[in-house]
Simulated assay, not measured.
Amino acid sequence: MSDLSEPVGTSDTTFSHVKPGDTPWRSDGLRDFFLYRDLGVAEATKGRVIAHLVKANMAPKKGTGWHRHEANFQIVIMTKGWAKFMYEDQVTLVEAGDCVHQRPGITHYLFDYSPDMEYLEIVSPADFKTVEVSPATQDIPVPTPWA
């Protein structure tokens, strides 16, 4: 595999077209309270980038916990519903239509989301690592109960 920092040429990637029924929602992703649907980008880019849809599967109880990702690039585009994150010391409401660029290494915590929450996440490299970090000193707001 070539260096992930090298420019991607047409010979380094393949064409990919994934339709909604082509890949299943899976429960074996990073968080057990979410479902994940692969969009074929990791395979097409030989691991340079991953794109997947993430949606709520269970009501929020404790959230993701404080963590950071070892990644060069990460965006979240909320396609349905909403989610509340702590980005370092700031509560951030991300609603349908919003796009968040999570700078490399930012400490964050997803603590609340709507039952219909769904977002597109794009990360480079595809095999990015998640690192749990010590809890912040501030309190985490309480999640909104689902009806």
Rank of each mutant, 00 (worst) to 15 (best):
S11G: 08
S11N: 13
T13A: 15
T14C: 05
T14L: 03
F15K: 10
K19V: 08
P20F: 04
P20E: 03
D22N: 14
D22F: 06
T23L: 09
T23N: 14
P24H: 10
R26N: 08
S27Y: 01
S27W: 00
S27F: 00
G29H: 04
L30C: 02
D32R: 15
L35H: 12
L35C: 09
Y36G: 01
D38L: 09
L39Y: 07
G40R: 05
A42I: 07
E43T: 04
A44D: 13
T45W: 02
T45S: 11
K46S: 12
G47W: 03
I50T: 11
A51G: 04
H52N: 10
H52C: 05
H52I: 05
H52G: 04
H52Q: 10
H52W: 11
L53M: 07
V54S: 06
N57Y: 11
N57A: 14
M58Y: 13
A59K: 11
A59T: 03
P60G: 02
K62L: 12
K62M: 11
T64L: 09
T64M: 09
H67W: 01
H67R: 08
H67F: 01
R68W: 12
H69G: 00
H69D: 00
E70I: 06
N72H: 10
N72W: 01
F73C: 00
Q74M: 11
Q74D: 03
Q74T: 07
I75K: 06
V76F: 05
I77A: 04
M78L: 06
T79K: 12
K80L: 07
K84E: 11
Y87G: 00
Y87D: 12
E88S: 06
D89H: 10
D89K: 14
Q90P: 00
V91W: 05
V91R: 09
T92A: 14
T92C: 12
V94S: 08
V94A: 10
A96F: 03
G97V: 05
G97L: 01
G97K: 01
G97F: 06
D98W: 03
D98Q: 07
C99K: 10
H101G: 13
H101D: 15
Q102R: 15
Q102K: 14
R103N: 14
G105M: 11
T107M: 15
H108R: 11
L110M: 15
Y113Q: 11
Y113H: 14
S114A: 12
S114M: 09
M117I: 13
M117V: 15
Y119M: 12
L120K: 07
E121F: 11
E121S: 13
E121K: 10
E121C: 11
E121T: 15
I122Y: 09
V123F: 05
S124M: 02
P125Q: 06
A126R: 10
